[in-house]
Design a protein around this nucleic acid. Structure first.
Lengths: 218, 218
DNA sequence: CCAAAAGTGTTCGAGTTACACCCATGG
DNA sequence: CCATGGGTGTAACTCGAACACTTTTGG
C-alpha cells in the first residue's frame, strides 16, 4: 500500500453466505466478554494484529443484513499505520488491505461492491466518523495517524487521504503548529531532497482510548 | 416540568435487581425486529408515547453492567417537547420526567444517583451527544426542540437548558436568522408582555429520521 | 545545475463574542 | 406608570481559505 493511501483491512470469506466475498473482521461476542475485547481477540487470533485503539461506530441490527438470521453487530473503527500493524498472512483467514477507492463504496446504484453483508455501509459510515473525529476532535484523537516521529508533510498526506482532497501546505502547517499539537524533535528525515524536520505528538494531550470528557466550550 | 427544563423520561423498576430505582425505558430485541422498532414498541406499549425521531447513542456491553448476566444494550436518545408526548400514567410502568440537575449525574465520586444499571452513564453520554448534534448539525437535527410554532426566546431557552449556560440574546437571534433555519409566521404570541413574533422551521431543510449524508465541506 | 521537496506570511471574508438601550404590552 | 419580556447594531477578534516564492539537498 502506498503511504497515505486509504485502505480497509478485509478478509475473504471462506464460508457461505457470501463465500469468496470480502468482509470486515469480526466474531461473535462471548459471554462476559467486553465488546471491544471481542474484536481485539479476533484481530489477534486470526490476523496477529494487536494494540490499536478502537472507537465504537454503532450497532447494526436490521433484519435481513445476515441471510442466516437476525444478527446484531457492534462495529468499531480505527486508523493505523498499516506498516506498523502488518497482519500475519494466512494464519486463519486471508486478510488484505483494500483501497477504499477500488472498493467503489459510493456506487449506491448497483451492488457493484464485492462486500459481504452490510459491510460496505459500515465502511462508509466509519469513513464519515473518521473525518468527523479529525475535524472536530483533532486534539484528542486516539488514532495512530502517523508513526511516532513524522514530518509535517507526512501528516498532511494522511489528512489528504482521509478527506480525499488536497490541502494547502501553509495553512495545514500553521494550523497544526499553532494548536500546539506537535513538537519538533532533534532530528531530520534525510534522503529525499531537502531534509525535513521531524515532529512528535505532544505527550498526554491526546487521550488514550478509554474515557473522554468533552469540553463544554467547544 | 417547567418549560425549557432538561429532564429525562425514566421508569421506576418494579423487579429486582435495582427494584425501586429509576431506569431508562427499554426492552429485549425480538428476532427480526429492527433495533429502533424495539424501542418504539416499548415506548408505545408501556407509556403510550409514539412518533419521535431516535438517534443511536451506541452499544453498552460491559460484563457486570447487568447483575443478572452479560447483556448488551443498544441505547437511543432524542429530545422532545414533553408536553407534546405526555406519557400514559401507570399503563404498565411508573414513568416520570426527572430533571437532569436533581439526578446528580456528575457525582462521579459516590454512587449517589438513584439510577439502575449503567443508565447514569448512558444519560451522561446522551447529553453529550445531544449538545454535539446541536453544535455541529443544527441545520439537520431531527429533534423536536420546540413546538411547531415558537418564539425565538423559547428556542433560546431550550438551547440554554441543553448547554446549561445562558446565551446572548442578540447573538443567538442573529445566528438563527442569518442561517435561514426559521421563518416568521403571520402570528404573534400574546399574553406575557410585549407580543412576540412566532416562527416555524423552514420546511424540508431538516432531515427526517431515516438516513443522513454529511457534507464534506463542513 | 536542476529537479524535487521543505519551508515560510499576508490578506480577505465569515463567523463568534461582548456589549446597552429602546419598545410594546399587561396589570 | 412601571415592570417585564421583546427586539435591535456594532466593533474586536478568531479561524479558515487563497495564494507564490525561496531554500536545501541528492543525483
Amino acid at each position: 500500500m502506498r503511504p497515505g493511501g486509504l485502505a480497509v483491512l478485509l478478509a475473504k470469506r471462506g464460508a457461505r453466505p457470501f463465500k469468496g466475498e470480502l468482509e470486515l473482521p469480526g466474531s461473535p461476542v462471548r459471554t462476559n466478554e467486553p465488546l471491544e475485547k471481542t474484536l481485539r481477540r479476533e484481530l489477534r487470533d486470526s490476523a496477529g494484529i494487536r494494540g490499536m485503539s478502537l472507537e465504537q461506530l454503532g450497532a447494526f441490527g436490521e433484519p435481513g443484513r445476515d441471510p442466516r438470521g437476525h444478527a446484531v453487530s457492534i462495529a468499531y473503527f480505527t486508523w493505523v499505520v498499516a506498516e506498523q500493524h502488518a497482519f500475519v498472512a494466512g494464519e486463519k483467514r486471508e486478510f488484505g488491505w483494500h483501497s477504499i477507492a477500488t472498493l467503489k463504496l459510493n456506487e449506491n446504484a448497483g451492488d457493484a461492491s464485492p462486500l459481504a453483508f452490510d459491510h460496505a455501509n459500515q465502511i462508509r459510515q466509519a469513513h464519515h466518523a473518521l473525518r468527523h473525529h479529525l475535524r472536530h476532535h483533532i486534539d484528542q484523537t486516539p488514532f495512530e495517524l502517523v508513526p511516532a516521529r513524522f514530518t509535517l508533510t507526512e501528516l498532511q498526506r494522511v489528512y489528504e487521504a482521509i478527506f480525499e482532497r488536497t490541502v494547502d501546505k501553509r495553512n495545514f502547517r500553521s494550523r497544526i503548529l499553532t494548536r500546539g499539537l506537535v513538537e519538533p524533535v532533534a532530528a531530520k528525515r534525510v534522503g529525499n531532497h531537502r531534509a525535513a524536520q521531524l515532529y512528535q505528538w505532544k505527550s498526554l494531550k491526546r487521550k488514550s482510548s478509554q474515557q473522554r470528557e468533552e469540553v463544554a466550550t467547544k
